[in-house]
Simulated scan of single mutants.
Amino acid sequence: MPSWNTQIARLFTEQKKALEAFVTRRTGSAQVAADLTQESFLRLARLDSGEKIDNLPAFLFTIASNLVRDHQRQAIRRERMEAGEPSDELPCSTPSAVDQLAAYQDETLMHDAIGALPEATRQIFLLYHVDECSYREIAERLTISPRSVEYQLRRALIDCRAYIQARLANDAKGSRP
């Protein structure tokens, strides 16, 4: 079995460009992507070499995704600090209670529909729609073909639509006098 440093070096050679592209898409900045990619590899290299990680590339992408999330949170905090105190003269942009309830119900329904998907399909759906991975990136991470990714995404949309329609139909039947 190769040493930890050898594994990290090989991973760097194989995944650096893909990881930078992934982070660039999420941040919109090549410079930030370069920094976060480097930090991802550093954090992985600092792990105890005795820890067993089944899928190093997937773990590396998870580290990068978390770093992107942290970076975006810090950017939001900086923007809020720079904006200063809110003005009393600005109109309230908070949605009404009815709008908030409707949004919550829509979000809950979509969450339930995604939760009803088979595990593999749900994982592909979330990688594509939440983590914004390309078909090719998903295929590489899950060792499947891009065509399979495309099929699973199409299947997920069909299944989610059917789940939502069935729930709405059931809710409509239950609310009739």
Rank of each mutant, 00 (worst) to 15 (best):
Ile114Thr: 11
Pro118Cys: 02
Glu119Val: 03
Asp106Val: 03
Arg80Lys: 12
Glu82Tyr: 09
Val98Arg: 10
Asp99Met: 13
Gln100Phe: 01
Ala120Cys: 08
Ile114Trp: 00
Glu132Cys: 11
Ser134Lys: 04
Ala120Ile: 03
Ala83Asn: 15
Leu67Asn: 12
Tyr104Cys: 12
Leu67Arg: 01
Glu137Leu: 12
Thr108Met: 13
Ser93Asn: 14
Phe59Ser: 03
Asp112Trp: 00
Leu126Trp: 00
Ala75Gly: 14
Met81Thr: 06
His111Lys: 15
Leu67Lys: 01
Pro95Lys: 00
Ala83Asp: 12
Leu126Met: 11
Met81Pro: 04
Ile124Glu: 02
Glu137Thr: 13
Glu79Thr: 06
Thr121Gln: 11
Met81Gly: 08
Arg77Phe: 10
Gln74Phe: 08
Thr94His: 09
Ser96Ala: 01
Pro57Val: 00
Tyr128Trp: 02
Tyr135Trp: 04
Leu60Cys: 11
Gln100Lys: 12
Ala83Tyr: 07
Pro95Asp: 00
Glu107Arg: 09
Glu107Gln: 12
Asp99Lys: 07
Leu67His: 04
Ser65Val: 00
Asn66Ile: 01
Leu126Gly: 04
Met81Asn: 08
Arg122Val: 05
Leu90Ala: 12
Phe59Met: 03
Arg69Gln: 11
Cys133Thr: 04
Glu119Gln: 12
Ser93Tyr: 04
Arg69Thr: 11
Asp70Thr: 11
Phe61Tyr: 06
Glu132Val: 07
Asn66Tyr: 02
Val68Asn: 07
Asn66Pro: 02
Ala120Lys: 14
Arg136Glu: 15
His71Pro: 11
Ala120Val: 06
Leu117Ser: 09
Phe125Thr: 08
Ser87Asn: 08
Ala64Thr: 07
Leu109Lys: 02
Ala102Ile: 03
Cys92Pro: 12
Ala116Glu: 05
Gln123His: 10
Leu60Ala: 06
Gly84Trp: 02
Arg80Asp: 05
Phe61Cys: 10
Gln74Val: 04
Leu67Tyr: 02
Glu85Ala: 14
Ala113His: 07
Glu82Phe: 13
Tyr104Trp: 07
Arg69Met: 10
Glu79Tyr: 12
Ala75Phe: 09
Pro91Ile: 01
Ala83Leu: 14
Arg122Thr: 02
Cys92Thr: 05
Leu90Tyr: 05
Ala64Leu: 07
Arg78Thr: 10
